[in-house]
Design a protein around this nucleic acid. Sequence first.
DNA 1: ATAATGCTTTGAGCGCACTCCAAGTCAAGC
DNA 2: GCTTGACTTGGAGTGCGCTCAAAGCATTAT
Lengths: 126, 126
Amino acid sequence: MTIKEVSEKFGISQDTLRYYERVGMIPPVTRSSGGIRNYQEEDLGWVELAKCMRNAGLPVEAMIEYVKLTQEGDSTFAARLQLLTEQREALLEQKEKIAATIKRLDHKIRRYEDAVKTGVLSWENN
Amino acid sequence: MTIKEVSEKFGISQDTLRYYERVGMIPPVTRSSGGIRNYQEEDLGWVELAKCMRNAGLPVEAMIEYVKLTQEGDSTFAARLQLLTEQREALLEQKEKIAATIKRLDHKIRRYEDAVKTGVLSWENN
DNA sequence: ATAATGCTTTGAGCGCACTCCAAGTCAAGC
DNA sequence: GCTTGACTTGGAGTGCGCTCAAAGCATTAT
């Protein structure tokens, strides 16, 4: 699969795909004899993983570390486990914050729905 | 309340507090005769709101727009309602993405827990 | 063979959200 | 009155995560 196809498949720009590879967020991609990227199944798996992690807001740094450990082989299972666990914690925390903010927005939205109907905003700080 | 106290109360740097005010993410803060910030209850409410929204990852831009509308008075209820609703949507989406990633991490973590015990990682792409 | 297209690398540039710095002002204690 | 320390402003600098540009090589269509 060419970089163009991968770009379209995942909705990630070619520049970003090259960037991910360059900084080590995905392992080196399979190349043709002429040095042109030819993404295999495994490469696609990495791209998909990277996209998922970045979507959730995980730092690029964490992904780079994970890829590095993976490439160092079976002796890094424990380190990878720890890394994943830490990142999971961070995501849970972030999810909590978002949930709290949504709750707050819901409350404000209800007040504004009233305000739009009645012309008066029920009082409360901001 | 001085900027120093507010900074400590909310865990936001003085620089950031001034930045928030400068860009309009919170309305102008009450000042002493000498021009020194003296945060009142209402100002604190705005700071707290700003912190909550930023914690959830809402763009500064959105908060600026909301503050602007608020200062334009009662004619902007509908616009404020729309803004809040949009931001709520964005947060819900982000929460979904995080939830999906957590699920995925959970799965990987289970595999690595096994791997650490047995020395073998059950196969699966990355 | 030539032109067009699309890939390659390297390195610079950008937008966001701060964060730091310089130079100056103010307020409180000695 | 003078020093100290916290405050002020305006503007420059930083880190992250891309994003773009320049210059050159490869592949395909004519």
